[in-house]
Nucleic acid binder design. Sequence first.
DNA 1: CGCCCTCTTGAACCAGTTCAAGCGCAGTGG
DNA 2: CCACTGCGCTTGAACTGGTTCAAGAGGGCG
Lengths: 208, 208
Amino acid sequence: MQRSRIRRFDRGEGIFLHQSPSRSCYVVMNGWVKLYRILASGDEAVLRMHTRGEAFAFADALRQGQHHYGADAASECLLLEIPSDALRHILANDPGFATVLLGHSFEQIDALSDQIEALKCRSGVQRVAAFLRQHARPRGNHMFVTLPYEKVLMAAYLGIKPESLSRALAKLRDVGVVAAEGGLEITDPDALDELIDLRGAERRMAAS
Amino acid sequence: MQRSRIRRFDRGEGIFLHQSPSRSCYVVMNGWVKLYRILASGDEAVLRMHTRGEAFAFADALRQGQHHYGADAASECLLLEIPSDALRHILANDPGFATVLLGHSFEQIDALSDQIEALKCRSGVQRVAAFLRQHARPRGNHMFVTLPYEKVLMAAYLGIKPESLSRALAKLRDVGVVAAEGGLEITDPDALDELIDLRGAERRMAAS
DNA sequence: CGCCCTCTTGAACCAGTTCAAGCGCAGTGG
DNA sequence: CCACTGCGCTTGAACTGGTTCAAGAGGGCG
């Protein structure tokens, strides 16, 4: 573990590139990291966002190949950088470590499955609403969301354009999502939950 | 391993339900299996399709909780059913087995990431095209796709409605995808690849 | 034959994109 | 001190991709 080190990244700084050789894996100590791919078309697909306590690039490190995605700092952040061979060394010597990694992989799979579920079945507004619910924390006697990063990035993560995100948030004002000092306040969480579970036909009914 | 057994399922038959207690995991010997969730809205999200040689529900089996998704036979299929505690027993006694499971998990993560990439950046037609390329096999001096299951299911997997899939395939006829005995023939794979990598603005140019 | 099931097609409609303009604000330089 | 610029975000209007609803074609089967 003494071979690992803490590194600081500025907002927007690259951590590693897609298809670069994998030399390390990372644990987020602070801030946000974006995992993404640039397609042949030039579009960027944001695969995952990671924050404090979460790990990434473990799979790439263990397989000793290239990174399966790129990683950028989405905000200023601190990362624990673990060299790939150090990781493999731990895995070979500590039998319990494989189980820890397995557990971690399973959580990733769950998170990705949730995303796919949302992309296939929910509208943009619903995905935004779900995103807000997920990031909402109690504050005083209301729920409060501190937007974790810029809206351009949030939109990319949700699979919509920034303009659509802007319009989605405008619509959510009717359901008690109001701009507040440094974020958004959710005055009626139940209404938000209800909106998230609406199916297509019901959405139109509700809009009228 | 003598505690495992081979089971046969008919097309459409349920294998296990979402949130039912996890008692076994499976390896597909033959046929296709659909992993899905039913949302509160009533919509169905198809998360993954698995075929010969692929495994599923391992994560659920090891975590000893409930299934994180439902599973149905998409076609008639043969599955190797492994009881959860047998799996845990192997994991505890065979140190190399954890590595195998890890590798398997990483492949799942890659597959899910690819899906997210497609859903966030590609149009419906492009996803259909990519699906066909992925399933195309050489046959004579052409590429040929045997459609693996009904189009309703294929559409759900691709995150579009059956009608849209039908129209997408109609559009792809212009790019050399022609109906043939028992499937589709791809006369110009390069054209298909090109279409897959087109970005929004270029798509409209090409359409004219 | 009639029935069901899968798939296709058409027309109206809606969600999200695109392009363009405009606002508020921080940083810069005259 | 204030114009100027760049950036993040919002808003409007036109447009497109995909959905919805409804109708119909074709095949398999009792």
